[in-house]
């Protein structure tokens, strides 16, 4: 009697396949569950000065897998050499925005009312405070916008500098 070579080899191949399928399924499920808990810090992908609204429009992207809740923003205005405006600090303005994972949104950071449009060399530093759902810590994102055209209102990509800093207390962020 001949050995059942074909059936034995078929059983071996199918066994390897089933081991591969179940093992990769467990690994994939476990990894996806772990990845879904990773919070990502928001990334500034664009920022422009809109003269009609007298505001800075900041485009933000959430690269993580946890929704981001934006709490407030504050603004520091540093005058350049081509403006008569004095420097000022805007106290935190409440924001009620939630950025879903892997999505992009535009935040409107309004400047102080009844002030001149931004001129060349003016620097606006916006501090956006945010939290993650289920995490007690409060984080902040500092974005520096520099006006690079003579008059405001044009769509210009600004020199961007972005730093994220972690603050332990609310008082520290409100300073």
């Amino acid at each position: 009697m001949q050995r059942p070579v074909f059936i034995l080899s078929m059983i071996t191949v199918v066994g390897l396949l089933i081991g591969y399928i179940t093992g990769s399924f467990i690994t994939r499920t476990y990894t996806l569950k772990r990845i879904a808990e990773v919070p990502g810090s928001p990334i500034v992908i664009s920022s422009i000065y809109d003269s009609a609204q007298h505001a800075i429009l900041v485009g933000l992207h959430n690269p993580g897998f946890v929704p981001i809740n934006f709490i407030n923003y504050s603004i520091v205005f540093t005058p350049g050499e081509y403006t008569n405006e004095a420097g000022y600090f805007l106290a935190p303005v409440a924001l009620n925005a939630t950025l879903q994972p892997q999505e992009t949104m535009i935040l409107t950071l309004s400047l102080k009312e009844h002030t001149q449009a931004l001129a060349m060399g003016d620097v606006v530093t916006g501090t956006i405070v945010y939290t993650y759902e289920g995490l007690p810590e409060i984080y902040q994102l500092i974005h520096t916008f520099e006006q690079t055209t003579l008059t405001g209102g044009e769509t210009q990509a600004s020199k961007r500098r972005q730093t994220t800093a972690r603050s332990d207390t609310i008082q520290q962020t409100n300073n």
Partner: peptide, 10 residues
């Protein structure tokens, strides 16, 4: 199911 199939086919 794989074990059942293997033993049964053998």
């Amino acid at each position: 199911v794989y074990f059942v199939w293997a033993y049964d086919s053998l």
